Computed example of a mutant assay.
Amino acid sequence: MDATERNARAAFAERAILARYLGGVPGIAWGRSAWPPIPLRRRGGPARWHYWWSAHLLDAALDAAAHRPTRARRRRARRLVRGIRLRNGGTLSRTFYDDLAWMGLALERDDGHRRATERIAAQLEGAIDVAVGAVPWEVGNPFFNAPANGPAAILFARTGRRDAAARLSDWMDETLRDPSSGLIIDGVVIERGVETRRATELYTYCQGVALGAAAALAHDDARFASRAAALVGAIAAWTGPSLLLPGAGGGDRGLFAGIACRYVADAASVPQTRAHAGGPDAATLERAAASARSLVIANADALWAGRATIDGLPLFSADATVPADASPDAPERDLSVQLGAWLTLEAAVSLD
């Protein structure tokens, strides 16, 4: 499939999201959490607005504006930022550091939000627990995890805080890497300097953000090029010959595989034409980049092939390994699931 077809598929996913999930008033937009809107009788109450889903909705909207530039897409991204601020009580701040990092990563891509990006990056840098060497999941919480430290490290790398980014990447590699699989576990609880619990679950987006951090640092440091190549290999081994990332259902987990694909695509751009001094040789980098590209394309193709069609628009599966479930109560109805698919399809476009 050529780049034009990949872009057309991403545009089709974009159309479906906008038609079904985008709400708002003139000049302000936000994402509804489900389609159709969740009745009061389901899930214990009305559908609530999700800050961190909205950060990824903004990121996907900026992908679309980059891959298919129009004034309307740029205006839509600005409307989404206004909607996020409005729905979040007039501020972009959060007490959950993973949420805050996701928002910073989306805002960083738009020059009009440099001050907000800088404030978020500075807040995250100030949140690093010096005794642990990492960012907690939430203010005052002893849980230190990949979902907070991975995106924070990527944001630090993008905003010139490369030493801080490197320290967080090293912390994840030293503390959260499972030695048997090479994958990144969810996190650890550290209380009064002592690790009291390990959350050993293997989530797709933990792999994605750890990989994204290494890839962001790999262009000028051989150590991180090696780390990125090794993690791509571990992810490929985890998925097996299909290269399909496991689905995790709806709700927050609906975004996990899409986030992973976004940063696997970043790893495909790690330098391939030369060996770093003291680092992996060119052939190793080329193999890792080719594997990363294959992972993204396989997942994008599987989601496209397994889609359902409702009213002429696609509904993507919550799990790339099976066809979409179009029933009214299926997880496919969550914005997170459809947004994860959109992120994956835009990641495939970014490879070109």
Rank of each mutant, 00 (worst) to 15 (best):
163 D>M: 08
350 S>V: 10
172 M>Q: 10
148 A>V: 08
29 A>F: 10
243 L>I: 01
105 L>N: 13
161 R>D: 10
220 D>P: 06
187 G>F: 01
56 H>R: 10
296 V>I: 02
323 P>I: 09
344 T>A: 12
59 D>R: 12
315 L>F: 02
204 T>G: 08
336 S>Q: 12
302 A>D: 07
143 F>A: 05
193 G>K: 05
72 A>G: 10
194 V>T: 14
42 R>Y: 11
246 P>M: 07
222 A>M: 06
297 I>N: 04
226 S>W: 06
207 Q>T: 03
80 L>A: 00
324 A>G: 05
211 L>M: 04
171 W>D: 03
117 T>R: 07
173 D>G: 11
65 A>H: 08
250 G>V: 04
215 A>P: 01
250 G>L: 01
124 L>T: 03
230 A>T: 11
18 L>Q: 15
193 G>H: 04
309 T>W: 15
140 G>P: 00
66 A>G: 14
20 R>E: 00
347 A>S: 13
262 R>T: 13
261 C>I: 12
281 D>G: 11
167 R>C: 03
166 A>N: 00
352 D>K: 08
78 R>C: 06
140 G>R: 05
331 P>M: 05
45 G>N: 08
224 F>G: 00
140 G>M: 03
85 R>D: 04
81 V>E: 02
243 L>N: 10
347 A>C: 07
70 T>W: 06
39 P>R: 11
336 S>H: 01
305 A>K: 13
146 A>R: 00
271 P>M: 07
24 G>R: 04
323 P>Y: 12
288 A>W: 05
349 V>Y: 08
60 A>L: 12
176 L>V: 00
184 I>R: 00
182 G>L: 03
232 V>N: 05
215 A>Q: 01
276 H>M: 04
274 R>I: 14
320 A>L: 12
194 V>M: 10
171 W>A: 06
116 A>G: 09
252 D>R: 01
17 I>V: 12
119 R>Q: 13
28 I>L: 15
67 H>N: 14
111 D>R: 15
91 T>M: 02
51 Y>W: 02
96 F>S: 14
127 A>S: 14
122 A>E: 10
171 W>L: 08
76 R>H: 12
170 D>H: 04
254 G>Q: 09
185 I>A: 13
338 Q>E: 07
33 S>M: 13
309 T>H: 14
342 W>N: 02
278 G>D: 00
104 G>N: 03
92 L>I: 05
87 R>H: 09
262 R>I: 06
191 E>N: 11
214 A>W: 04
245 L>I: 08
206 C>G: 12
308 A>R: 12
168 L>H: 03
327 S>L: 06
215 A>N: 02
209 V>L: 12
